[in-house]
Design a binder for these strands. Structure first.
Lengths: 203, 203
DNA sequence: ACGAATTGCCTAACAGTTGTAGGAAACCTA
DNA sequence: TAGGTTTCCTACAACTGTTAGGCAATTCGT
């Protein structure tokens, strides 16, 4: 039934690829349409507007990231931490536009019960939770108790995300040693801290 | 000589205020012009375009941040770290649009010697270095040797910036305890790590 | 094989934004 | 009061986001 052509998934995937080439902000409806060989209004058959497109890309990319990360995760404790953090960093360096999408798109608070939640927002929330669960897995593998879980996840996420963000922004490019060299040290110190948190609770 | 009216500084300061009200991305030439009670082309007498405006706001805000932070810095070691980190976090929470400006604006690498560097870009680089020097001051107060200075600054900056970014993005809003409660713990662990780095070098 | 429903894509058109060009008005100084 | 300087304006061109309505291609039921 109907004529075959673009579909929503193809449009979103193309947008994610474009984001890696030109930056997340540069992915406009017009640019994306030109890249796909159609006129701008055509895309409105597949997406409901620019913000829907961005949110959908965010959800799509968050799912990709969770897939990649969970596939790379193996071992326990320090090994698991390194596998987890390297997977995220590799993803961000390989696909900076995609990584940007995971952070740049602000999901409004769900406090308003009357407001209808668009499907793309719901998908982004679900995919975000998938990634949060992976972080939780790493922390739990250190034997950190439930009381400290949230804290440990926030500490670990902040450090990993912060380092990757500043690294991609070029903040580390103007001083020695190269960013590549200090990353393992960061993970070493993060490992020590997570170990300390786990040890401190079994008094 | 000449008719008094807007000048470049007033335009940039107004843009920074607007960023706090509506978000950094929402500050367009047209919106800013309307807010200042003039027509859009008028602004081109004071700024050379949209990217120049954004870069100039970044430089302006980086200077404000360095002023605020250096004014708040006092003490040594842990006290200094807390004063430094709290100043940045308070700034970011009080002025989220301004804080966004410090990170969202990408300064291209200065590798090309033939390219002329616009004044706003040079100002942003200088202001960025001011902030980097403040971070260095904190690290040095721990007695960390020059060999480890860069590493310690990267670690500290990544953690502080990452936590603030995720906090403002609302990532911590959906779990207990409140973000307010885990921040001091983060600084505690950061203090321990900086102390360890300092201790490890005098073997 | 044919009609009908379905679906994809198009043109036309409008509002809003960025940016350029050139001119008129307001102000300070002499 | 005249000159020079600077501010601000209107007019215009190009591009992006978005809506409305229509043509055309494909698939399904018969």
């Amino acid at each position: 039934m109907g004529r075959p052509g673009l579909n929503r998934s193809a449009v979103i995937a193309a947008a994610a690829d474009l984001a890696d080439e030109m930056g997340f902000d540069a992915v406009t409806i017009s640019v994306l349409a030109r890249h796909l060989g159609v006129r701008s209004p055509t895309l409105y058959s597949h997406i409901s507007g620019a913000t829907d497109l961005r949110t959908a890309v965010t959800a799509y990319v968050l799912d990709e990231l969770a897939d990649t990360t969970s596939h790379a995760m193996a071992g326990e404790g320090r090994d698991l931490l390194v596998a987890y953090a390297d997977a995220i960093r590799d993803f961000a360096r390989r696909s900076p536009g995609r990584y940007d999408a995971t952070t740049r798109q602000r999901i409004p608070p769900t406090s308003d019960p009357a407001a209808e939640i668009p499907a793309s927002v719901a998908a982004a929330i679900t995919a975000g939770r998938r990634n949060a669960d992976l972080a939780l897995t790493v922390v739990r593998s250190y034997g950190i108790a439930e009381t400290n879980e949230t804290y440990a996840v926030r500490l670990m996420s902040s450090l990993i995300h912060g380092y990757i963000t500043l690294e991609i922004a070029g903040t580390f490019a103007h001083s020695e040693p190269p960013s590549e060299a200090t990353w393992p040290e960061v993970l070493d110190d993060l490992d020590r801290t997570l170990t300390r948190i786990a040890a401190a609770q079994r008094h």
